[in-house]
Write a protein that binds this DNA or RNA. Structure first.
Lengths: 232, 232
DNA sequence: CGCTCTCTTTGCTTCAGGTCAAACAGTCTT
DNA sequence: AAGACTGTTTGACCTGAAGCAAAGAGAGCG
C-alpha cells in the first residue's frame, strides 16, 4: 500500500498544531478502509479494537435499547474522529456505526492510542475539545427533547443536518445523504408517522421539499423562525 | 492560608498516577472556597474564569432555555471535577451550578489549566475519560427520554441518585441532599405534578417514602425491577 | 416490464401525561 | 403562635402525539 497522504488529515482540528513529520508518523500506524453503503463499521458492545477518522462519506451512529428500539446518536461526517471508545476507558463501543453512503475511513488499532497520546500530548488536549463539543450537543439535545414539542425538535434537527451535511442546490439546501422519516424520528424522539405529517405540512407551506430518503430545505430562514419562535 | 492537604485529592481519578510531589505542585495553584447552600458557583454564559473540584457538598447544575424553562443537567458530588468549560475550548460556562447544601470546592484559575496539562499530560488523558463518561451519561439520558415512559424514567433517575448520593438509613437509601419534585421533574423531562403523582403511587406500594425535599428508597430492588421491566 | 420491497402518506382512535385550579402542609420569620 | 412562604398533593379536563390500519409510490431486481 502506498503511504497515505498527509494532506488528508493536516487540516483536521484533532491534529491542530502538528508538524508534517508528526502527521506522517501518526499516519504510519493507520490504514484506510472502504465501507460500502449499508455496511457496519462497528457494532454496539463489540470490543473496541480500532478508532477512526472519516475521510469521505457519512455514517449513522445509533444505539439500540434492550427492547429493540433504536435511537440515532449522531451522524459522522468527513473529517470527524469517531469510535474513540477506548480513549474514554471503555472496552466496547457504546453504539453501532453504519455507512449510509459508500465511505472511506482511516483506521488505527486501539492499541496505538496510548502510544500516540504519549508522544503527542496535544492529541489528548484536542480530543478533550472534540468530546466536549459532543457533550454539549448531547446536552442541547436533552434540553430540546425535555422542553420543546415535536415540530420544533424536528425543525432543529433538520437545520443541524443542513449545517453539518447540507449541499446547496438551486432551490435550497439538500441533506447530502439518504435519510428516511424513520431516521429523523429516531433523532428527535418521535415516530415516523409524526415526522411524515410534519414534513407534509411544511411541504404545503413550501418550507421543505422531500421525497423518498431525501429532504431539501427550501426556506432555511423561515424554518429557523419556526424552530425558534416561542410557543406564544 | 495553610497549604492544602494532598490527601484531599490523592484518590481522585483525575489525579490517578501522580506522585505526592505532583499533587503538591498542582494544589499550589488552587484555593478552597466555601459555597453556602443556595449560592451559585458559576452562572450560565458567564466567562469561564475557573475550574473546580468539589471537596464536600452537592451542587445542582442546570440549563435555562431562552423561554425560561429549566433542565437539570446533573448533580455534582464530592470528588467530581466540574466547570471545565475552558478545557473544551469554551469561553463561557454552558450551565449554572448552585450549591444545594453548604459546599466546599477547590478552585483553580482557568489560566492554570494549559500550564498544568502541559506539565502533567496524564491530566488530559484522565479528563478525556471524565468527559467521556459524562457523554455516556448524556446519551443514556437521550435514549431514555426518547424511548421510555415517564414512570420508568423517574425510577431510573432515583436509582441513579441513590447510587451517586445515597445514604443508607435504617429503612432504605436516602438521597442525602434536599431534592424537590420539581428537581426530579427537570431531570426527567416531565412536570412536578406528574412526579408527585408517581411518588404518591410508589408510596402506597411501600416502594419509597418521601416528604418535603426528601426521598428515601425503601425497596431499591423492587424499584429496579419497575425501571427495567418491559412495558409488556 | 412487471413484481417485490421498502419507504411514505394519511385517516381514525386512543391515551399518557400536560395544564389548570385549588387545597394542604411543613418550615421559617417575627 | 400567627402569618407568610415554599413545596406538595389531588382532582378534573384537555390535547399532542402515539398507535393502528391501510393504501400509495418510488426503486431495484429478475
Amino acid at each position: 500500500m502506498p503511504n497515505l497522504d498527509k494532506s488528508l488529515i493536516a487540516d483536521l482540528p484533532v491534529f491542530a498544531g502538528m508538524t508534517p513529520d508528526d502527521l506522517g508518523d501518526i499516519l504510519k500506524e493507520a490504514q484506510s478502509i472502504r465501507y460500502p453503503k449499508g455496511s457496519s463499521v462497528f457494532q454496539q458492545d463489540e470490543e473496541a479494537h480500532s478508532f477512526f477518522i472519516l475521510l469521505h462519506g457519512h455514517l449513522r451512529v445509533m444505539k439500540v435499547t434492550p427492547d429493540g428500539q433504536q435511537v440515532v446518536v449522531r451522524f459522522v461526517n468527513a473529517g470527524d474522529l469517531f469510535g474513540i471508545a477506548m480513549a474514554m476507558a471503555r472496552k466496547t463501543y457504546p453504539a453501532t456505526a453504519t455507512a449510509v453512503v459508500d465511505s472511506l475511513a482511516l483506521v488505527w488499532p486501539s492499541a496505538a492510542w496510548p502510544r500516540l497520546v504519549a508522544k503527542y500530548p496535544s492529541l489528548a488536549v484536542n480530543t478533550i475539545q472534540t468530546v466536549g463539543s459532543r457533550l454539549d450537543d448531547a446536552h442541547t439535545r436533552v434540553v430540546e427533547i425535555s422542553t420543546q414539542q415535536v415540530e420544533k425538535r424536528v425543525a432543529h434537527a433538520l437545520l443541524r443536518l443542513a449545517q453539518q451535511a447540507g449541499r446547496k442546490s438551486e432551490d435550497g439546501i439538500q441533506i447530502d445523504f439518504p435519510i428516511s422519516r424513520q431516521d429523523v424520528a429516531e433523532m428527535t424522539g418521535t415516530t415516523l408517522h409524526t415526522v411524515s405529517r410534519i414534513l407534509s405540512g411544511w411541504e404545503d407551506q413550501d418550507l421543505v421539499e422531500s421525497g423518498r430518503q431525501k429532504i431539501t430545505i427550501r426556506n432555511p430562514h423561515k424554518l429557523f423562525m419556526l424552530a425558534e419562535r416561542p410557543v406564544d
